[in-house]
Design a protein around this nucleic acid. Structure first.
Lengths: 366, 366
DNA sequence: TTGTAAGCGTTATCAT
DNA sequence: ATGATAACGCTTACAA
């Protein structure tokens, strides 16, 4: 009920003189439509203002009597605060997100655990989203989560498009990218060098007397796939070994593809060693090798990549090139938290070096 | 700047007559503290009201000219909507969460994929949180996420405390529990019957001539651990086999524990078959068996549980009791979406039957 | 200590 | 079609 007596208005400013009669009845509903109690409900029940109720609920101030009344009222009505409303006010949610292709790949599990540890240390909670490699899904996630549902985000895309990059740079909340990015991308970035990683594997195999070294890779149109291919070819060349293209196979980065690709490879060539672009592929390769009666490592040495727990689960245990996934996760989380605290930081870059872990699958036959 | 002429106040209602002078300067800042544009920024720049700006931004109404101006203004300032503010208004976020113990366990990955498929079909996005089995973490998550950051939540706890149950029933957003719950718990619940599942494994092993059947279980103070223990003992008894306690070992539900527990078991007994409480344990058991030179299945038959992709990755491939994790995930997601649409539904319960998948690890030796 | 009221950034209502 | 304004549920100056 409002009576406006005078109202003068200009485009820029608003001057008005009003006489109003407020509050015929309560100023606002105390029970919202869905029936859940709000601070208003609690305040009314306790016979105090919403300010007092809020203060008590947050443990700041309030006389003993007020505290008692508010606590009692809150308990009676089963009050639970609305985090969304709180966030709108505080401009933070205490949530951090991690987006990965495929949470079924143990390498992301390790990365996630490392991130989780850092994030939890800051009192925040980590949420994970599996994009399934669907790129639209990934940008959709950015366009939704990053629009304030979380305080920051870590993404590990295997394909990077211009759209992607735009979504990252436009993001209202800090985003850290784990993976290779253009040199000048103005984005916090944690990377490794899988090219060199593959070289470590090849060097090791050559040093232990292997010459017919095969390679099972993922798609070449992915960032890691391309890097690993280049690394493999360069390493062989460095050792003066001419690559037999029959020894190279491509699938995706999954177990089933590794198994199938190794089938194809064995059908037309006889490798004495196999380098696999990740551990899932390596496990698939191991399965095929054993199914074909090849002894590992006696007949064929096997080296995977990512050094996940899967490599240690197999029998024989798999040698694998560690790309420091836990370390990269940790660094990414640190970069993210720093940027959340100070958004004005310049874009930073962290690099984690690969290293080879030799296990039974490529041990020198004695 | 406000001049109150008269103000009469009663505890219940507020009547007041005021004369106020509003708007010396703009009524509100157009650029918030963090410098990001809001609808106000866009509206001001386009020379329209925030209402018009909002309408155009949401694609409802607006003259061609207004649409043009608002779109241009939004693009110029790089406007991105604040999802939190939108959610406060709409009372929904379009987000659904899944909380599991350990996302490193492939059984949860399968469940997650099934849930994701259903959730995506409703236009929502799925977020996963790994609680690491820390029960405080789990309730903390409920107490945060469920307080409106998500439209609903699916949790799969392995231990269920009264606290837990209270957190679930107090939750302002719908929660579906995957796992065994008290019969009368007023909570949507999807369950399986791992007791019967274990029986399927034992029946199969007995039918294929095994008599010294060992069992590697998880902790007995977990819901699944207790059920599987009971199932194992009951099944043996049904076949008239007296259980040798030397053939029973307990670890946790992880690979390393399965490996270690099997070491201990082999040190004091000679099983001709091993039932494992999940696939991670079974993979650990396989490793130990092979390392000890036992042939699988010739010397020792092996049956896991959960029927995850891990079982298919091994060589030999592992027999495993499927507890329908994907199916349970799908059902849970459906229950959740239904309840989000209609919170007044009575608590419902879905049950998924276990079934045995026989593979090489327990095939009858021929 | 307590209450009033002004936000936080949207969307929805209701006059105009 | 448009604009003013009131929510959404909370926190927090500021005043009393």
């Amino acid at each position: 009920m409002t009576f406006a007596l005078i109202a003068a208005q200009t485009p820029e400013n608003v001057y008005s003189i009003r006489v109003e009669v407020q509050g015929v009845g309560r100023k606002r509903l105390q029970e919202p439509a869905d029936g859940r109690p709000t601070v208003h409900t609690v305040a009314a029940r306790a016979g105090v203002s919403i300010a007092s109720a809020s203060r008590v609920l947050n443990g700041v101030g309030g006389s003993p009597e007020t505290v008692r009344k508010v606590r009692a009222a809150a308990a009676e009505v089963g009050y639970v605060p609305n985090a969304i409303a709180r966030s709108l006010q505080s401009q933070r949610t205490g949530l951090v997100a991690l987006a990965v292709e495929d949470i079924g790949n143990p390498v992301y599990v390790e990365m996630m655990r490392a991130i989780e540890a850092v994030v939890a240390g800051s009192g925040r909670q980590l949420l994970v989203h599996a994009t399934g490699g669907r790129i639209d899904n990934e940008t959709a996630l950015l366009r939704r989560l990053a629009h304030r549902y979380v305080d920051g985000m870590i993404i590990s895309p295997i394909r990077v498009t211009a759209d992607h990059l735009a979504a990252v740079t436009d993001s209202p909340v800090p985003v850290v990218v784990v993976g290779q990015l253009a040199e000048d991308a103005p984005v916090d970035n944690v990377r490794t060098d899988s090219r060199t990683g593959i070289a470590l594997a090849v060097d090791h195999l050559v040093a232990t007397g292997r010459r017919r070294i095969g390679f099972v890779n993922g798609p070449l149109d992915t960032v890691p796939g391309a890097a690993r291919d280049a690394g493999f070819r360069a390493a062989l060349a460095r050792h003066g070994i001419t690559l037999d293209e029959n020894l190279v196979e491509i699938g995706d980065f999954q177990y089933a593809a590794g198994r199938a690709a190794t089938e194809r490879l064995l059908a037309r060539a006889a490798p004495d060693a196999l380098v696999c672009a990740n551990d899932l592929i390596a496990v698939g390769a191991l399965h095929t090798l054993l199914a074909h009666g090849r002894r590992v490592p006696t007949d064929v040495a096997l080296v995977g990549m990512d050094d996940t727990e899967l490599a240690r689960m197999m029998f024989p245990q798999l040698s694998s090139v560690s790309l420091g996934s836990a370390e990269r996760g940790r660094r990414a989380a640190e970069l993210l938290l720093q940027r959340i605290d100070d958004p004005s930081l310049p874009p930073r870059r962290a690099q984690v070096a690969p290293n080879l872990v030799v296990r039974a699958s490529s041990e020198v036959p004695t």
